[in-house]
Design a protein around this nucleic acid. Structure first.
Lengths: 220, 220
DNA sequence: CTATTTTTTTAGTTTTGTCTAAAATTATTT
DNA sequence: AAATAATTTTAGACAAAACTAAAAAAATAG
């Protein structure tokens, strides 16, 4: 496995995440995700194509090749292992780990990462509930779904929150919703797409559609 | 404390180490240390001068300012804490940690480093016996001296080995000398500067001058 | 104390990754 | 289907950090 620059790695990772949702990724989407300009994206796409990490024809959008996906999974492995380390060992709170892991993930020493994995006891998911690829790049398919997509009267374990603003954290804290909380959907209202949910045997309470769209759960 | 590029940090660190020995550092020394060209050094010296990290007049050599020394101690703190982590927690051998720490040291998140320090139990020295600066940049003055400088019949604890080639490691292993070994100097021979040393109550054995020059000990 | 050698600096390129402005292509309207 | 709008690419510049080759300054030798 070759070595890639921090910048290249950030592009690869962003494409990987965007293509999960979209299939194919566009220049503007990627520029927006990386807070850069479309022209810079085009430049980098040419580079990654030459390195055979990317399928790309001008104006047609792009996807990672198999090799590109492998590289992406390596970066994600590093990122999530460091997140786990930060939360579990250094006692960072789950909303602080992402930013620090963004820096640590670019240290790409294979032995370091494999020994870190072992030291942590081969964790299966990071503090947000996202699965950690193993040393071979294998990753469990996440059964993670959005709270809005849950069927009535099913229970899900909160595994991640996509927005991480202090505003959403304030609201989550008030509603006593955290990573690991078990939520049961009791009612959905078509008018505003709000829903009523319960935690354990406590009385049901209301969640707005905006909030529900940012909460993801693991369900059986 | 501002943020500096990886390249700037490598220069700052190298100057810090060289000026310990020399007082003032020259262009060629630094180019040699960093495996770069003198012209590149001059370019960077101008940059660091503008940032007030360096006292530098053309052709006169350079030293770090107080601010520059502070920055250097921050980098060294990060480097040595990661070395300790790698050796103590991830079970890297003491001769492997330096290279990996060279990469990790450039992640300059203060909270990360202070929490790492706490997690490790505020270690005082790295696996090579070099002191770790505290969160304020305070560092214990090392009483580390070269084996060649030890007085007869004094005992020193091996704390570091400057050369880290596999050839020297083979020899050290054969002579059963490792970090932490207590050595007592019994005789010195003027002819070839070789010396006889003892480990505990075992019979004395001979060490060449070349080897002794690469072994450093902490003595009282 | 000149002359030569060594060291250091300057000048001009190169590479990587970014940007702006303009041109080319594709998508959307009417 | 032609006109307009949006997206994407190209062309040209710039900053950081490196390099080579040449010039300038300092150190050393005869």
């Amino acid at each position: 496995m070759l070595n890639y620059s921090t910048s290249e790695e950030n592009y690869i990772k962003a494409i990987f995440h965007l293509q999960r949702q979209d299939g194919t990724v566009t220049t503007n989407e990627l520029a927006n995700e990386l807070k850069t300009k479309p022209a810079s994206v085009t430049d980098m796409m040419k580079k990654l194509k030459v390195k055979k990490l990317l399928n790309y024809q001008p104006y047609q959008g792009f996807r990672l090749t198999n090799e590109g996906n492998k590289v992406a999974l390596g970066i994600i492995r590093r990122h999530r292992l460091w997140e786990y380390f930060l939360a579990e060992k250094l006692k960072f709170s789950w909303d602080e780990v992402h930013e620090v892991a963004e820096e640590l993930e670019h240290v790409s020493n294979k032995k370091l990462i494999d020994k870190l994995d072992e030291f942590l006891g081969f964790p299966r998911t990071d503090p947000h509930g996202d699965p950690i690829p193993d040393a071979n790049g294998k990753i469990e398919i996440s059964k993670k779904i959005c709270l809005t997509a849950m069927a009535l009267n099913t229970i899900g374990v909160v595994s991640s929150v996509s927005d991480q603003s202090s505003e959403i954290l304030e609201l989550l804290e008030h509603k006593k919703i955290a990573i690991g909380t078990k939520l049961e959907v009791k009612k959905k209202f078509e008018f505003d797409n709000s829903m009523e949910v319960k935690i354990g045997r406590q009385p049901a309470f209301t969640i707005s559609n905006q909030l529900a769209e940012n909460i993801f759960v693991l369900s059986n």
